[in-house]
Amino acid sequence: MNQAQFMKKGDCMIQVLSRHGDMYSLKVDEQKLIGDQPVIDTYKVSFDLVVHECHCECNLFGSKATLCCHMLLTFSYFQVNEVPKCYISSRWSKNVRRKHTYIKSSHDVNCSDESNNIFRGLRSHFFNVAQEFVSDIEDASILHLSIEDALIKLYGHRASKLQSSVPNRQSSNPPESQRAINVDRLLSPPQVSTKGRPSNRRLGADLDKPIKNTTRRFFS
């Protein structure tokens, strides 16, 4: 998408309308071909020379997080050679963290079919609702509040499920006293006397001391 918008810069002409301090107001004329007839659409663009913030009334970035050709042309006009960080969406970053991916793979189709079906159903439902009430600000506000209320209820339901599962796990463990007895039994086994002749009663042990005394007197 960004590559297509970058190529469409060649179909645009930019002109500065006004300037107030570091803020510029511009217009971008984009030439389009509808059928065999060329058509020119004009878009208003605002640009901050200090922080390099740009806004276009086509609102392509606001809806799809994609820089439009009008904004790209504005950056080129003011010699901004790098895309400002505020326009680099985290979802396009290689370091983005995702809780779960719903892209089907040949390795995990069997284990993810159920979650994929649930996700597709919810996504279709959310999209249809948003599409129905997107044209009215009051309707959209009510929808936002309803989603927030639903989130609160869902988090509460999840917390209650976790709390109810804790007693079940605790009941499956033995009592503290019983566990202490078991540990004592494991750590303190009864001592068993070893078999065989004691190490200090080997054959000839009684003769070692006289022999050593005789040898000491002979060489002294």
Rank of each mutant, 00 (worst) to 15 (best):
M7A: 11
E132R: 07
K64F: 15
N59S: 13
E132D: 08
C111S: 06
T215Q: 03
V192F: 12
K104S: 12
M1H: 14
E148S: 15
I118T: 07
V192A: 11
Y87I: 01
S171A: 07
S171I: 04
R97A: 10
Q170L: 12
N59P: 08
P198C: 02
S112N: 05
I103M: 08
I103D: 08
S146R: 13
N173K: 07
T101R: 09
V45C: 01
R185D: 11
Q191W: 15
Y43N: 00
T42W: 02
Q191K: 10
C86F: 09
R123I: 07
A130H: 11
D208L: 12
E138K: 11
A159Q: 13
S165V: 13
S90Y: 14
F119R: 10
S93E: 07
I211R: 10
K44V: 10
P174S: 04
A4D: 10
W92M: 05
Q3W: 10
I211C: 13
V80D: 00
F47H: 00
T101Q: 14
S199M: 05
L72I: 01
L143C: 04
M1L: 15
P175H: 01
P167D: 08
T214I: 12
R179E: 03
C69P: 14
K161A: 11
R185N: 14
D22E: 09
Q191M: 10
H144Y: 05
V50G: 00
E82W: 04
S90F: 09
P174L: 11
N116P: 08
R217V: 03
F218E: 07
T42N: 02
S112Q: 04
H100S: 14
L207R: 05
R123Q: 08
H125Q: 12
K153A: 15
R217P: 06
P190D: 15
R98L: 15
H144L: 13
L143G: 01
G121R: 14
P189C: 02
F75K: 02
K44H: 06
K32E: 13
D11K: 11
D41H: 04
F6W: 10
E176G: 03
G156I: 08
D136H: 11
K85S: 02
P198A: 04
G196N: 01
K8S: 14
R216M: 10
R197A: 06
A150V: 14
K104E: 09
S105R: 05
